[in-house]
Simulated scan of single mutants.
Amino acid sequence: MNHPLRLLQAFTVFCAGLYGLFVFLGNLMDYDSNYQFVKHVLSMDTTFDGNALMWRAITEPWVWTVGYIGIIIAEGTFAALGLVGGVLLFLRRNADSVTYDRARTWGYAAYAVGLAIWFIGFIVIGSEWFAMWQSSSWNGKDTAMPLAILWAIFAALLAMNAPAPAHESDRQ
C-alpha cells in the first residue's frame, strides 16, 4: 500500500522528537546557561525598571532549580514521545486504520507536551506572567512562538486522513 500522508505524519512526529532530543541534551550538557535563563525569567531581574508586576518575581534558588528540572523532564518526555511515535507510525504505515490510529496517540501526546512546554510554559507563564517579553537578554518568546505554532500545525497534519481512493468514494 502506498501511504504518502502516513509517511509524512511519521516523519514530522519523528522530527519533532529529534528536535526535543537535541533540546533535552543541550539542557543537560550546558546546564548552567539554561539554568541562568530560568533564574532571570523567574526573578524578573531584567524586566523594565519600575515594573508594577515585580510582586510575581520568584527569587528562591530552589524554585529555579525545581522549575528547570521540570522543564528538562518535560522536554525529555516530548522527545521520547515524538521519537517512539514517529517510529511506530512508520512501522504501522500500511496497517488498518484502527492500528494506525493507536500509533497516532504517541504523536498527539508529543504535541500536547510540546504545546505545554513552549506555549503554556514559555509564552503564557514566562512571557506574560513573568514579563519575559520585557527582557532584552532573557526573552525566549520569539523562539517559543514559532515552535508552538509548528506543534499545532503538525498536530493538525497528524489528524488528517488520506482521501479514499476514487473507487471507494464512488460507492457512497
Rank of each mutant, 00 (worst) to 15 (best):
L21Q: 12
L42D: 01
W55H: 14
L115Q: 13
N2A: 11
Y19H: 14
F11H: 06
N51L: 07
M145N: 01
S136F: 13
M44Q: 06
A79R: 01
V23F: 13
D49K: 14
L53W: 12
P4I: 00
I120E: 07
P61L: 04
A57F: 00
V63I: 15
L88A: 09
A112I: 14
L147W: 04
T77R: 00
G17R: 03
R93Y: 01
G70I: 04
G20T: 05
G114F: 04
W64I: 04
R56C: 02
F90K: 04
L91D: 03
T47P: 08
I123W: 10
M29A: 15
W138I: 07
I72M: 10
W62Q: 13
N161L: 10
T46Y: 13
G121D: 02
P61Q: 02
H3D: 09
L7R: 13
Q134W: 07
G82P: 02
G82F: 06
I125Y: 08
G86T: 02
V38K: 03
S135G: 05
V38E: 04
I153S: 08
S169R: 15
E75L: 09
L18Y: 15
L150P: 02
I125N: 08
N2I: 09
A116D: 11
A159W: 12
L53S: 12
A162K: 06
F48N: 12
E75N: 09
T65A: 07
V23H: 13
D142T: 11
A74Y: 01
W118L: 09
T46S: 14
V38Q: 11
M54D: 11
Y35M: 09
F130L: 10
M160N: 07
F22G: 15
F78T: 05
T77S: 11
V23R: 12
Y111K: 06
F130G: 05
G85E: 02
A112T: 14
A152K: 06
L53P: 00
T12L: 15
H3T: 10
F14D: 00
V84M: 04
P146H: 06
R102F: 04
L91I: 06
S137N: 14
L115W: 15
S97E: 15
I117V: 15
I149T: 09
M1Q: 12
T143K: 08
V23Y: 14
R6H: 09
A103M: 02
D142S: 14
G76K: 06
P146S: 07
S33Q: 13
W138V: 08
T47D: 09
A52G: 11
T46G: 10
L28C: 07
D101I: 07
E75K: 06
M44A: 02
F122V: 01
R102V: 05
D101C: 04
Y35R: 05
A57N: 03
